[in-house]
Design a protein around this nucleic acid. Structure first.
Lengths: 337, 337
DNA sequence: GGAGAAATGTAGAACGCTACACGTAGAACA
DNA sequence: TGTTCTACGTGTAGCGTTCTACATTTCTCC
């Protein structure tokens, strides 16, 4: 008779450890959880058996009663290497803890969030979600939640970790002004409106006005789709009031802008200065040399994780952490006299 | 008395559904699993209750008896946008199935793999692992396993999905030859030796020899670290026998190469032709215009997922899927006469 | 109309762990 | 000497599913 599935090595259970150590299952569980009421002798004995048998507790079984020691990360997409920085921060924060991060990707966080709750994640970190507060609060009611990149936190029942996007945009504009540019356009995102975009647009407007350039305010919006971005940029650069600088809401878009400008025979930064956002590794390449706003994804990830674990451990009142962005100047926005 | 944790909304369980529908728990479970012996009437009744109560089965509980409907992906790092393609392929394959993919990152797959097995993943996809066959077979003994990017499959107990890396390298060399280049160097990876690297180096050697350029074979190896890569490239480009073309084992390295060359005042492709590998989205930007070998990550991810689900469903004999790479020519390797 | 088969539903024992309730022994106190 | 306390272990009831075994009903066919 043919077996249906492979005869996999059976797993070592807590019972095996208990019988090997000659103690009760409950005792092993106590050791496992660092619970109260364990003598040094018992701990040593159990630990020895666990090591010997190479025992590992099964997360599902734990989850049925308590925690799974798993955190869920939800990213909107992965093409942007900025998200890798966030993940690195999360992993750094988790080093030497018993938690493990698992990541999923979906533009519509909803389905993925449900899937993660089904899988007993102890807590969730949502990056740049398109959900509104009501929906987020609803999630927070069901699982500990930290959101990265969401500015509307009035009445929020969850924690938030943000880059000061308004300031970031202001810094970009200010930097361009200082380098002698005045017709500064902004390339923004059209499709999924987010509070992050709003803040950056607001910062751009405010700073332009403050710099006396209110008349030159020019915000273009394109969807994420590559083709549309290119078209939008091309139209802008070929128009009568072609800007002499452009602030892009993401490095990826900035690279697009440089690409189109190059194709049109414009030289960077003489004919067009460019500033991006995120300060991804690609900014450093000399074919890009892209000035960018650094929002240190690693810090964002690290702090979000810290807050999440606090919350899992019982904190009830919402917390909010803000990272201050900074300009990393490179050749793409060099002085233009 | 202060509560320790939030009073979270209690979850709807199978029992709730059963009592709402006025049937047994077992009946609901049958409906859930599409098991044999369910009348249309019963199915409808149960389905209605599930919809009404918005019931979702808990993965941990399922895992304790059967499957969790979760697949684990293990990537070596995330900075390379190529991996996003693979993930996209996986997600595409999973569309309209009940499976969900969860991803973790770690250069040393070992610990992460254990963590995933602890979390009852139904199967694992390892991308570009540094493990040897013995170790991989050991993992395969414990859980269904598919490996992407691992060529040593003699006696393998797992499935493999590969790009034909040897052919890819040959195509790169052949393409450069056809475009009039002859002093073709290869920039390879030093630190974690992998069968992928080996195959590419082999392909490079073989094709160079076949093209009568055996004397010009020149393989440089640098670790992943950015600084070291730059130094290696710089040294190569400043040496007496500076090549007129360079084949890089990854787009990322190719961009580095372009960057360094640009800094040295060399022009691409006239002074130096460059070919990368992976055909990532960044190749298209006109500041890069990088010729690259496309190994279609999406197909890799898709096929790996297909094989994995087959294996979860009981297939025992190992399978192997190979994707044929192709050259995507751009300006970085244009004809040089 | 009755026997056997097929179809449909249910009970209840796991799965591996946690955590509550409790038992026991020795120490501290009166 | 008895009582109370504290420290340390153990027994066992679940957690939410799946799945085997079985009971009941309905068909099918002579």
């Amino acid at each position: 008779m043919q077996k249906k599935a492979a005869a996999r090595t059976p797993r070592i259970t807590i019972r095996d450890v208990a019988s090997d150590a000659g103690v009760s299952v409950a005792a092993v569980s106590k050791v496992l959880r660092d619970a109260y009421g364990v003598s040094e002798a018992l701990r040593a004995k159990v630990q020895a058996s666990m090591d010997k048998l190479n025992y590992r507790p099964l997360a599902s079984a734990r989850g049925l009663r308590g925690r799974t020691y798993t955190l869920g990360l939800v990213f909107p997409d992965l093409r942007n290497p900025f998200f890798a920085d966030i993940f690195a921060g999360v992993n750094a924060a988790l080093e030497r803890t018993r938690y493990q991060a698992m990541q999923g990707i979906s533009t519509s966080a909803s389905a993925l969030v449900e899937a993660m709750i089904d899988r007993q994640m102890d807590g969730l970190i949502l990056v740049g979600p398109n959900e509104n507060n009501e929906r987020l609060n609803d999630i927070a009611k069901r699982t500990p939640l930290v959101v990265i990149g969401h500015h509307d936190i009035d009445g929020a029942k969850f924690d938030a970790v943000n880059n000061d996007d308004q300031l970031g945009a202001r810094l970009a504009v200010r930097h361009l002004c200082q380098n002698g540019h005045s017709k500064i356009a902004m390339l923004s995102l059209s499709a999924p409106v987010s509070t992050v975009i709003n803040q950056r647009e607001l910062g751009y407007r405010l700073e332009m006005t403050e710099q006396g350039l209110g008349g030159a305010i020019n915000i273009l919006r394109a969807p994420q789709v590559l083709r549309d971005v290119q078209l939008t940029i091309r139209k802008l650069l070929e128009s009568k009031d072609k800007p002499d600088a452009i602030f892009c809401w993401t490095d990826l878009m900035a690279f697009e802008a440089i690409s189109v400008a190059t194709e049109l025979g414009l030289s960077i930064p003489d004919d067009l200065a460019v500033v991006g956002y995120d300060n991804t590794i690609f900014c450093d390449f000399s074919q890009n040399r892209l000035t960018s706003i650094d929002q240190s994804g690693e810090v964002l990830g690290l702090q979000a994780t810290r807050l999440l674990i606090e919350r899992i451990d019982g904190r009830m009142q919402p917390d909010h952490f803000v990272v201050t962005p900074r300009v990393v100047a490179r050749a793409s926005s060099a002085r233009n006299d």
